[in-house]
Amino acid sequence: MTTTTVAPAPIRQHEPSRVRRSPSRGVSRALRRLPIQILIGLLLVVEIYPIVWLAIGSFRTQSEFLNEPFWALPANFNLDNYVAVFTTGNFGQFILNSITAVFPALALIIVFGVAAGFALEVMVWKGRGGVLLLFLAGIMVPAQMILLPLFTVYYRTNLMGSLWPLIITYTAIGLPLTVFMMATYFRAIPREMFEAATLDGASVLRSFWSVGFPMVRNAIFTVGLVQFFFIWNDLLIAITFTNSSKLQTIQAGLLNFTGEYGAVQYGPTFAAICVSVFGTLVIYLVLNQRIMRGLSAGSVKG
């Protein structure tokens, strides 16, 4: 399940013989490669073009959308659509809500999850296998199973008017995968490291903090990234536990733009999608290798 993103191991092929080749063979060779090259070109168009179209569309006006073909460029690049997104669309509030809900939950997930991973993998005690399995079960169970009891509790305790339900629920939902992944990373550290620390007189908490933690610092960052994407992109929890538009996260707020009822405001819709895509896209541009590695390792979540 570990993904290597280093350069693929060289797969030796028949080295093309260096003897002179007749021109016709060169041509046929190029022709043979042509379908693959077309395929790759097509693949890139399918993956990239929608995003390019999105970015261009965010500058077009309503009448340009309705009266011109989809590939037409906007007459001028002004920011009207973006202004609309942040004023009438109230997107600034959504972004603030997302940040307020996601980052405290992320911090809690990491602190609790790393400590629990250490206790379950490095420490020796009866029943740790069972507890690890218990956490693993949480990855499988659909979130729908916990919505109603939590809704009841949040409703009774009057937490519904705040972002606390999101923070609490995100923390709990993120824990199983984090504990599982951290346990895997701790397993890769030779036990002798901790035994040596113990012989030197370190307490368990000391060897967690001074030996274990520094050795998995990279892994923690990767796990944090994975959890960030899961929570940041969440829709189900966000629409279940927020009861007013003041509390909506980016994903929940973006749903207002589906235009199910009434005409679609194309420009603002495109601009809103752009804004919501922007954050994760920038992070991906900088950290793509690490993200690919992390998400592959966390694929048990499905």
Binding site: V111, F112, A119, M123, G138, I146, I168, T171, V179, V204
Partner: peptide, 24 residues
Amino acid sequence: VLGDKRAIAILLGPALLVYTLVML
């Protein structure tokens, strides 16, 4: 030392508590 009950409680306690209360 690696089986220190108090340390286990400190390290595992918070995660297990949240997980139990909010999921199990």
